[in-house]
Simulated assay, not measured.
Amino acid sequence: MALVPRLLLVHHTPSPNLQAMFEAVVSGATDPEIEGVDLVRRAALEASASDVLAADGFLLGTPAYLGYMSGALKTFFDSVFYPCLDAARGRPYGLYVHGNNDTTGAVRSVEGITKGMGWEKGAEHVLVTGAPTKDDLRACWELGATVAATLMP
């Protein structure tokens, strides 16, 4: 672990609904009661293996596209899978997914890769179809706060 634990948020945020979810996750992860954890935000197409290797935990955000995670998040995983395969085992992650009508395939695809990388589910996934409700946004806040709290020194 780094001197100050680092939580890496890798996201693809192409819509207002995902933007609202992203902001709620960030708010939870940076709540004043979360002390001694740095949140690093990276768009999925900008995140790198060095970001993953420097992180102690992960938050992942994606739309569900045609029964799968976004191409941007898949590109992220493609670029970091082998360089980070053994180095990040056992680290916690959280996932939020937005879909117009279904999130099942996107969740299955992310879980398959995170399992292969040895990441541990650190909180319940937040799965939203349609416009996020206040309860959905509260669940996103809790996702960010929960994963961040697990990294507190």
Rank of each mutant, 00 (worst) to 15 (best):
D86S: 10
E35M: 12
M1G: 15
A47G: 14
I113T: 15
G28I: 05
A55R: 02
D135L: 07
V110G: 03
L53P: 01
H98R: 07
A87P: 00
H125Q: 05
A54L: 06
P16F: 09
Y93W: 11
A149K: 14
L53V: 05
D51H: 04
M152V: 11
N101R: 14
V97P: 00
L151H: 04
Y68Q: 12
G71Q: 07
H11D: 12
A24G: 07
G57E: 00
T146Y: 06
I34K: 08
H98P: 04
T133V: 08
A87R: 10
L9V: 03
L143F: 00
G130E: 07
E120T: 14
A24M: 09
V26E: 12
H11V: 13
W119R: 02
L137F: 11
L39E: 10
S48C: 04
V10H: 05
A148W: 07
V80H: 04
M117R: 01
L95K: 01
A148N: 05
L95R: 01
R138S: 10
L45Y: 10
R42H: 10
V4G: 02
R89N: 03
V4M: 15
V10C: 09
M21P: 06
E111G: 01
A2Q: 15
V25S: 04
G112F: 04
L9A: 09
A149Q: 11
G118P: 00
I113A: 08
L66P: 01
A55N: 06
N101W: 13
W141G: 02
F76L: 01
L73P: 02
D78N: 09
K121Q: 13
A47Q: 12
A123F: 00
T129H: 02
Y68W: 12
T62D: 08
D136C: 07
G122K: 02
V26K: 09
L18R: 14
F22M: 13
L127Q: 09
H125M: 05
V128T: 12
A72K: 04
T104G: 09
G94C: 06
Y65R: 12
L137H: 08
S48W: 08
V10P: 03
D135Q: 13
A131I: 13
G116T: 07
G122E: 05
F77E: 05
K134P: 10
V128D: 06
L3T: 15
K74A: 13
V26L: 04
V26A: 09
F77W: 09
Q19V: 12
E142T: 08
H12A: 15
A131F: 08
P92V: 09
L151K: 03
M69W: 10
P132W: 11
A47S: 11
T150G: 14
K74Q: 13
Q19A: 15
Y93N: 00
G118R: 02
E120Y: 01
R108S: 12
W141H: 14
G99F: 03
Q19K: 15
C140K: 00
L53F: 00
V128A: 06
A43D: 15
V25A: 05
K115F: 02
H11L: 13
A2L: 06
D135E: 15
M117C: 02
L127H: 00
D56E: 13
L127Y: 01
T103C: 14
